[in-house]
Write a protein that binds this DNA or RNA. Structure first.
Length: 307
DNA sequence: CGCTTTTGACCGGCGC
DNA sequence: GCGCCGGTCAAAAGCG
């Protein structure tokens, strides 16, 4: 998928435990930009794409990337080091990474799963983002540039868990893969807490960064998240809350700077979770609902949201 | 012609 | 020390 940045593929490798090759990309926006991106399909569900970002951009990001990050936060991790907000964040030099998993929109829903880790000391929260938009169809689901900027229908579940305990569903999650493989142990762990809503809610009050267990794979996580009843419950609650909120402020938020009739058409109908909007669940607030994000608006404002 | 992708080789970390 | 494995390099091929 197009995330607004320019990437050059520099390698491809089949990793152990997953027949699908992992592709390695390097940011080409700037000659010396150290940011890397890895893309791999989930071994257990080929419709899931797992993308891992690593590194810190040393250049201003394209507007498209800024918009992307502001809505899905897929690139939020990258953006936190991007110079669109450079005055505030230019000092960040710690390695950053994020993991995303896309689920084929041909299915009943279009998931966008993300885990991100900027640095242990940062205030960022691991997130699960469900992108329920219709912006991808069968012709452009394959990596290519979507015609429009990413639509703002994003359900963002953030969590933080104590370092001295693990979610109770860890065993169940592991059972989905007899031999969990750390396809990527840089940023896979933090999603776990999001699978247990109760745990997540408890953890919402914790200020500690989550631990980084390294014995589970991202595709296992993605699979577990999307099948976990707790997650589904959280999603249902989120959608319910979202629809209700949209009923109240659809007019206020619907006229976004997207200026796209396509988006406006979506936002005019509230009967489906695929419609536009943005929901954030992020500590300390159990549920925060906000309207569509602006693409052409101030990147600074977007970054405030991304943070 | 310049840029990107492909792909086998190479390298370093890690476990035994 | 050896082998495995993930990540990167770089030459060749592809493409517009």
């Amino acid at each position: 998928m197009n995330d607004g940045c320019q990437w050059r593929k520099y390698g491809q490798k089949v990793s152990k435990g997953n027949p699908c090759p992992r592709a390695y990309y390097r940011c080409t926006v700037a000659p010396l930009c150290p940011v890397r991106k890895q893309v791999q399909r989930c071994a257990e569900d080929m419709s899931i794409l797992i993308t891992t970002y690593e590194g810190t951009h040393n250049h201003p990001l394209p507007i498209a990337a800024t918009a992307m990050a502001s809505t899905t936060s897929a690139a939020a991790c990258m953006l936190t080091s991007g110079s669109t907000s450079a005055p505030r964040l230019s000092g960040i030099s710690a390695p950053s990474s994020s993991t995303t998993a896309y689920i084929n929109p041909h299915g009943p829903s279009h998931f966008y799963l993300q885990n991100q880790l900027i640095s242990p000391s940062s205030n960022s929260h691991p997130t699960i983002t469900l992108d329920l938009t219709n912006k991808y169809n069968s012709s452009n689901f394959a990596p290519s540039a979507p015609r429009y900027p990413p639509a703002p229908t994003t359900f963002n579940f953030s969590s933080s868990i104590e370092s001295n305990s693990m979610p109770s569903w860890t065993s169940a999650c592991s059972s989905t893969s007899s031999q969990p493989q750390p396809y990527n142990n840089k940023s896979t762990a933090h999603v776990y807490s999001s699978l247990n809503q109760a745990y997540w809610q408890r953890a919402a009050t914790s200020a500690l960064p989550p631990p980084a267990p390294n014995n589970m794979s991202t595709d296992t996580i993605a699979r577990a998240i999307t099948s976990d009843p707790s997650f589904q419950s959280a999603l249902a609650a989120a959608i319910t809350s979202y629809v209700g909120a949209r009923s109240n402020d659809a007019n206020a938020n619907g006229a976004s700077n997207y200026g796209s009739s396509r988006y406006l058409d979506r936002s005019s109908s509230l009967g489906s979770a695929r419609q536009g909007g943005l929901m954030l669940l992020q500590p300390p607030m159990p549920v925060v609902v906000s309207g569509p994000k602006s693409v052409s608006g101030s990147p600074e404002d977007d970054m405030e949201q991304a943070d």
